[in-house]
Design a protein around this nucleic acid. Sequence first.
DNA 1: CACTTGACTTGGAGTTACTCGAACTTGGTA
DNA 2: TACCAAGTTCGAGTAACTCCAAGTCAAGTG
Lengths: 117, 117
Amino acid sequence: MLISEAASKSGLSTETIRYYETVGIVPRVERLPNGNRHFTTENVEWLTLLYWLRKTGMPIKVMQHFAKLYNQGDHTIPERKKILLEHQSRLEERRNNIDQCSAILSHKLEIYRRFES
Amino acid sequence: MLISEAASKSGLSTETIRYYETVGIVPRVERLPNGNRHFTTENVEWLTLLYWLRKTGMPIKVMQHFAKLYNQGDHTIPERKKILLEHQSRLEERRNNIDQCSAILSHKLEIYRRFES
DNA sequence: CACTTGACTTGGAGTTACTCGAACTTGGTA
DNA sequence: TACCAAGTTCGAGTAACTCCAAGTCAAGTG
């Protein structure tokens, strides 16, 4: 499939996919005779994973490391596992932040409600 | 209090506080005779709110708008309320993203676990 | 067959929200 | 007096896109 389809399926924009290619976290996929990128479903799965990791705040540098390990084969799985576990604990932290901010907002909104009436 | 204390109490860094001043979301606080900024507890409460809003992804532009309304007095409360409500719904969205990514990670980690043994 | 439309290409500039460094002043201590 | 920590401003650097210009190419229309 072409880049636009890969984009809509993964959630990333076409610009972001090309950007990810230049920074090396997306492989240089095959090209069609006219020079257009050709994505496989496996490529799209990878893009989708990147989409979620990025969307939840994993820095590009970490993703670069992760992608490099991925390309080196199965013996890097323990280290990849470590990266994902670390990310999971950062997700938990973020959820706590959201909960805390949500509580603060509720409190603020409660105060506003009094002014309104 | 001085900027370093305001920073440690609010959670923001001294650099960020000064930056927020230049972009107009923190008032130009009083200065001591030597030119150092002097923060009141009210200032710190404002900084703390900004800290949480920012930490949970509110863009500076929105905070600029919010700060402007705040300075215009109580009659802007309905609009401020709207901003906070919008932010709350974005928080909910973010929490969903985190949950979804968390599920994906758990699945990946489960697959890795099989390789390990 | 010329033309338009739309999707693709690269390269480079612009944007957001900091973050850091240089160069300076000031206030308190040995 | 010498020094150190903490403050100041201003300007440059960074991360992760995001957009724009300028071009190519394939397909469809008059």
